[in-house]
């Protein structure tokens, strides 16, 4: 029978023993680690998870009601085929979502009144039915974000909270916070629409540093092209 820590007089041994025990207690249940979501090589390198981590909450703030949603959609599409869209007045247009990689057949739309919005979000995060969920929330408290993050962590669902860019946001348990601002497209004839072009600000990332990129979306190859920013 091994000696219990109480029988030894060595403080260090006792502490090591307790630390090991704590680590065992605190360790999440063994689960195959989910591969991170790749955005673009230059962005992935700057993120602490070498990509965007799944099974977590991420925040996307934007002034433009199109660009922020598009960025969230392209993340969701990379998480898997089943995507949830929760809003008080949901307005997705499947014909256009396909350009961002989302299959309309796998899109679950939920219309929830403001008071039930976060409840519905938690239900969707917790269920193992959806790979990613877009939540159009006006406010999110620290407690609520923690709860949502835990639900997402448990099921492996990637939660995306979309908010208007008002600045001075309260702290949140989300793993990352992004700001998406639309930019005029690259020069070209005025009678043709350019490819979508944004300024992506990584405002906050747990275990990483803020960064900024200028990116362009390639609609035919469904890839983000980094024009400048980051370390690339």
């Amino acid at each position: 029978m091994p000696a219990t820590p109480h029988e030894t007089n060595d403080r260090r041994t006792v502490l090591d023993h307790l630390r090991a025990r704590l680590a065992r207690l605190e360790a999440p249940p063994a689960r195959p680690a989910l591969p991170p979501l790749s955005l673009a090589p230059a962005i992935d390198r700057a993120l602490p998870w070498r990509g965007l981590c799944r099974g977590a909450l991420h925040e996307v703030v934007a002034d433009d009601e199109g660009a922020g949603v598009a960025f969230a959609c392209l993340i969701a599409a990379r998480a898997g085929p089943s995507v949830g869209w929760i809003a008080t007045r949901p307005d997705p247009f499947p014909a256009g979502l396909r350009a961002w990689g989302i299959d309309p057949a796998g899109l679950l739309v939920v219309r929830a009144p403001p008071e039930d919005l976060l409840w519905a979000a938690e239900e969707c995060f917790r269920s193992k039915a959806l790979n990613a969920v877009l939540v159009f929330a006006s406010t999110l408290s620290l407690a609520a974000s923690r709860r949502l993050h835990l639900a997402a962590e448990e099921s492996g669902c990637t939660g995306l909270i979309l908010q208007r860019d008002v600045g001075g946001r309260p702290p949140s348990a989300a793993r990352s916070r992004w700001r998406v601002s639309s930019l005029p497209g690259s020069p070209g004839p005025t009678y043709l629409m350019p490819a979508p072009r944004w300024r992506l600000d990584l405002l906050r990332a747990r275990g990483g540093d803020p960064a900024t990129w200028i990116v362009q979306w390639n609609e035919t190859r469904h890839t983000l092209f980094v024009e400048e920013g980051g370390d690339g």
Binding site: L108, V109, V110, R111, A112, D116, C124
Partner: peptide, 15 residues
């Protein structure tokens, strides 16, 4: 979701 939000509140969009 339907139990709380109502039958019409949860849907998929078909063409």
């Amino acid at each position: 979701l339907r139990n709380r939000l109502g039958q019409e509140a949860v849907f998929r969009l078909d063409p």
